[in-house]
């Protein structure tokens, strides 16, 4: 993480100057609309440092993930060092610095799912998608993650693909779930 990103401007479509705390100028390699979007999110929370987590939630909602460039702008708007933003982003599992796949697969590894065999389901997904936990397929179609308890313990083991919940998943059923999204 560096405060200034020194990449040749011509490499990017846009290279915007952001004026932050103490009038420091930083160059950020993001399209203009994106910068405006982040600015408007920060403004909506009054550029209050106490609202950092809410700002990051909104940013992740808008962009799908929170890359370093976005953290730069947030830090400047909220008048805090970018290290602090980075610290918060990496502390909470909800925030991600890498984009998720088009169909994010999340296997619940909460206790109830664990005792009902979630481990084997996860292993099957790893084998079928050829992914480790936290990775995205090269074509960007699938990503694999674990999560802790969605609270549908009666349906254990539970798998989420996007927002859709699959209950009582057995290792044998994994292939069929993936096939649904391959088309």
């Amino acid at each position: 993480m560096s405060q200034k990103i020194n990449i040749a401007p011509e490499a990017f479509e846009y290279m915007e100057k952001v004026t932050g705390a103490g009038g420091v100028e930083v160059k950020v390699n993001l399209p203009k609309e994106k910068i405006e979007k982040i600015n408007s999110i920060c403004d909506a929370f009054g550029n209050d440092p106490g609202e950092l987590i809410n700002v990051l939630h909104e940013a992740q909602h808008a962009f799908g993930y929170i890359p370093a460039e976005i953290q730069d702008i947030v830090a400047h708007n909220l008048h805090m060092p970018v290290s602090q933003v980075y610290g918060v982003v990496t502390f909470y599992t909800f925030f991600s610095m890498t984009p998720k796949g088009e169909h994010p697969v999340s296997v619940c590894t909460g206790t109830a799912c664990y005792v009902r065999g979630a481990e084997r389901v996860l292993e099957e997904f790893r084998k079928e998608l050829q992914l480790e936990v936290g990775e995205t397929t090269p074509d960007g179609r699938f990503s694999l993650n674990c999560l802790r308890c969605v609270g549908a313990c009666g349906l254990a083991p539970v798998v989420l693909v996007g927002e859709k919940v699959y209950g009582r998943v057995s290792p044998d059923g994994v292939k069929a779930i993936i096939e649904e999204y391959k088309k």
Partner: peptide, 25 residues
């Protein structure tokens, strides 16, 4: 409302308060 962001330790009250202040929990 204040939102958590996926950290178990934030159930501990001092960690929770730090998280609400926008810091690491």
């Amino acid at each position: 409302l204040r939102y958590g962001a996926g950290a178990f330790v934030c159930g501990e009250e001092t960690a929770l308060i730090h998280s609400m202040e926008g810091k690491r929990g």
